[in-house]
Amino acid sequence: MFSFIARRLLATIPVLGVVALVVFGILHLSPGDPAALIAGDHATPQQVAAMRSKLGLDQPLWEQFGAWIWSVLHGELGISIFSNQPVTRLIGQRLEPTIALTITTTIVTVLLAVPIGVIAAWRAGTWIDRSVMSFAVLGFSFPVFVVGYLLIYVVSMTLGWLPIQGYRNLGDGFGPFLIHLVLPSLALGISFMALIARITRTSVLEVLNQDYIRTARSKGLAMWQVLLYHALPNAAVPIVTVIGVGIAVLIGGVVVTESVFAIPGLGRLVVDSILSRDYPVIQGVLLIFAGVYVGINLLIDLLYVALDPRIRY
């Protein structure tokens, strides 16, 4: 097991190297000029050129790449071209909202979607199943921003129950922190919930046709016991996979939700940086995202062993 983990960790190095190279290449080969944005809309071409030189953007690409990799190897992700602050600090400022949103969304989603999926599998072919599947299709079909706007309109503007936007740090109090996460978590969670419910239904349905389930039923176990202790654990591998991948996607892909609800997370940081061509920030954040993806995939692989003793590495 330890050698597996060590091999997987070592394998992340070339992965991150490739990510770094590709991200750097795509960014610097795409059009856009941070120097022109900083110098302002009405700066003269000479002023823009001077700014470009000062920022080192007139250096050959391989030199710029080399300098960045060198700083990464020394534990630094570079300095933002615009805010002049270390990328690690910028990421640190944005980490809490994204992690909080990811955790609350995952909790809400898993707590609702897994039971719904199990019930749908149990009542396969009935109106309950069809309702769950309809919800799943709707959940996939509605873009997050539409769900977000609807929730804001109904829950915040019409009923006045929750704030429309914003984020409060945990340090400002647990109440305000939680209240500001309810709507974004729901908006983000609906499509995720639909996915998990659907996968859960399919997996549990497959397991319910197995002989050992029939045996469990014939022993006189209640249906809830069969579902909870026999069906669900054996259907868990694909469900955990989807949840794990979902968490990775949430960490890197909550851009729309963060924008709609004005949450200052990593998604917004990376989009803002792309729009302004703040290369060090984009490179740093994407490198972190890549690391998170690799880490979560490793975690999922390790969870397989715990969930299914037949799996060995």
Partner: peptide, 18 residues
């Protein structure tokens, strides 16, 4: 001074007094 990237939400937040 808090920047809101979504113009519609900013308008709604003003209307709501946030």
């Amino acid at each position: 001074s808090v920047y809101m990237p979504d113009a519609a939400v900013a308008i709604a937040a003003l209307g709501n007094g946030e």
